[in-house]
């Protein structure tokens, strides 16, 4: 069992008013609610303002390359399935640079939780368009407005029948906590796309903009109905649904490897008798 204090309190490099603060707090609460201790956790992040989050809590951390958190986390999980592995990074990192890994992680159904801080803009590099920026969104790098369609992570994830697909909003800290807690509990790949404002570089999708649109899914919503989930996942306009959009139960990827039933790979030596048998095949 752990308490909020176990996860520490650190100075951050974020702008005052950034949505990341609420997300960090909600993640810590979710970890406490999940009964996890810092040493049981591995946070893997990429590069970006969101990717700094793991530095601001107590856990094992691998802050890797831009876009490459998912494959690194996949390798770590396949090396030691006892670790609770959480990928935490932004929309640019996960959906842009790491797009192919996003698809592959869903296909594998590897048992890890992917938290995407989605503010529809690049913060760390000072305000260029991200894969989720709205068409027409004007930045210094896109002075004529964004020309391409926004990427719809939830629609893609639901279309691919990802194990657990949720959306939340940093303005509702308790909702974020609930979604992250459920995502950690889910055995298989889980995605929580967390909308949040960027106070410095996104003057369009502001706190108020999200607050006016984000609407919790009704109590009678069934996340196991795939067709209904597809319709919910593509909703983006005056109303943006938040909550657990889709869920299914499939065996997680790591269960396919019999060797992992014997524990972490680091603890498994070389079976010299098996090795001798292998050599003999080449005689």
């Amino acid at each position: 069992m752990s308490t909020l204090q176990d996860f520490g309190q650190y100075e951050t490099a974020w702008c005052p008013g950034c949505g990341n603060f609420a997300i960090l707090q909600a993640v810590k609460k979710a970890l406490v609610a999940s009964g996890l201790s810092p040493h049981q956790l591995l946070f893997v992040s990429g590069i970006g303002q969101a990717a700094k989050t793991p530095h601001y809590l107590n856990a094992n951390v691998f802050n890797g390359l831009h876009g490459r958190a998912l494959p690194l986390a996949t390798g770590a999980k396949l090396s030691n399935p006892a670790l609770t592995v959480i990928v935490e990074s932004g929309d640019g990192c996960n959906y842009g640079e790491g797009g192919n890994h996003f698809l592959a992680a869903i296909r594998r159904n590897i048992n890890l939780t992917m938290l995407v801080h989605n503010n529809q803009v690049y913060g760390l590099t000072k305000g260029q368009a991200s894969p989720t920026s709205q068409k027409g969104f004007v930045t210094k790098a896109q002075p004529g407005g964004v020309l391409a369609q926004p990427f719809s992570p939830l629609a893609v994830a639901v279309a691919m029948r990802a194990g657990f697909v949720a959306r939340s909003f940093s303005g509702y800290e308790e909702h974020v906590t609930a979604m992250v807690t459920q995502a950690i509990a889910h055995q298989g790949f889980s995605l929580v796309d967390i909308l949040h404002p960027c106070v410095s570089f996104n003057k369009l999708n502001t706190f108020t903009w999200y607050k006016e649109r984000c609407e919790k899914l009704p109590d009678d919503y069934s996340p196991t109905d795939w067709e209904a989930a597809m319709k919910t996942a593509v909703k983006w306009g005056d109303t943006i649904p938040i909550g657990l959009i889709y869920k299914n139960e499939q065996p997680p990827y790591e269960e396919n490897f019999p060797v992992l039933k014997k524990g972490p790979l680091a603890k498994q030596g070389v079976d010299k008798k098996a090795l001798q048998d292998i050599f003999s095949r080449y005689l």
Binding site: K77, L78, N80
Partner: peptide, 21 residues
């Protein structure tokens, strides 16, 4: 593990090695 691309392959190996394999 056959990775989705070589970038994934090397990053997976680094993750696995960090975790001890």
């Amino acid at each position: 593990e056959q990775a989705e691309d070589e970038i994934a392959a090397i990053n997976m190996a680094i993750g696995a090695a960090f975790a001890g394999a």
